[in-house]
């Protein structure tokens, strides 16, 4: 469903993504991990067609990313999603289903279904400008799923969500993947990746360091450690040095 072959993206002299290969199959939930500035968001933007690769190819459902066919198949939830402030949540959902050409009766059913799923009945008919961050996130997730995408791309999905909403979103991701949707999720929360992902890809400096199931990663690294320790080992050092130094100096000061 999603296929990146030898993809490089350079911003001037800096390579944000460096000869990256990545594949997400239908029904797979792929967690894309990496430290800040590793190239995760750049990769995701290339999959969505917002950035063109400097070299290599990005295919979405077999079509070049950014093509009309590719856009029709995917839904994208960015880390800072956009909502029309002067639309109500329901109006925004209606705009989305019209844009994707859903049959009206079916669209109305789907809108109602997601309003119920995300428990938005209390505020869905108010203007989005009055929503809190968490309320906006729910509307954005509903808008991403309401047109029944075949590919779901999510950048930092749980930021700003309360535990209940986070649970709903996690369950929905699993349900989507089990129904055949390819889900590519970028996150810093290793526990989420550990809990949900079928496949985990760890990227740093734009390069894929390791990918596979958690068991495969452990085998590859010959370690039974947690994902956090594997991640830290792969991305440079077991523990960040600064924390150790600071902690040591504080202890010395106290003594």
């Amino acid at each position: 469903m999603i296929e990146l072959r030898d993809v490089t993206k350079a911003f001037g002299s800096k390579k944000a993504v460096d000869h990256l290969d990545l594949q997400v199959r239908a029904g797979e939930l792929y967690a894309f991990l990496g430290p800040n500035g590793a190239g995760k968001t750049t990769t995701i933007k290339m999959v969505c067609g917002l950035l063109a690769p400097t070299s290599g190819s990005v295919l979405v459902g077999g079509y070049p990313s950014g093509s009309a066919e590719a856009r029709q198949l995917l839904a994208y939830v960015p880390d800072q999603p956009y909502l029309y402030e002067k639309l109500t949540g329901r109006e925004f959902l209606r705009f989305v289903v019209e844009m994707y050409g859903l049959e009206p009766a079916h669209a109305t059913r789907k809108i109602k279904e997601y309003i119920d799923t995300f428990e938005m009945n209390d505020y869905i008919d108010e203007l989005c400008e009055t929503y809190s961050h968490g309320m906006k996130q729910r509307v954005v997730f509903a808008s991403a799923l309401v047109h029944e995408p075949k590919i779901l791309i999510v950048d930092e999905p749980l930021v700003g969500l309360d535990p209940r909403s986070a649970r709903i979103v996690k369950d929905l991701f699993l349900a989507q993947a089990r129904s055949g949707v390819a889900v590519l999720m970028s996150t810093h929360l290793l526990s989420i990746a550990e809990e949900l992902a079928d496949t985990i890809g760890i990227v740093n400096h734009g390069r894929m360091l390791a990918h596979g199931t958690l068991a495969e990663l452990r085998t590859k690294l010959q370690s039974d450690a947690s994902l956090e320790d594997l991640f830290l080992a792969l991305t440079g050092g077991d523990r960040p040095n600064l924390v150790g130094r600071n902690a040591t100096s504080r202890v010395e000061t106290v003594q």
């Binding site: 469903m1 296929e3 077999g62 009309a68 198949l73 050409g101 075949k150």
Partner: peptide, 8 residues
Amino acid sequence: SVALSPVL
């Protein structure tokens, strides 16, 4: 991957 046929 196999190309899907989305209804545009």
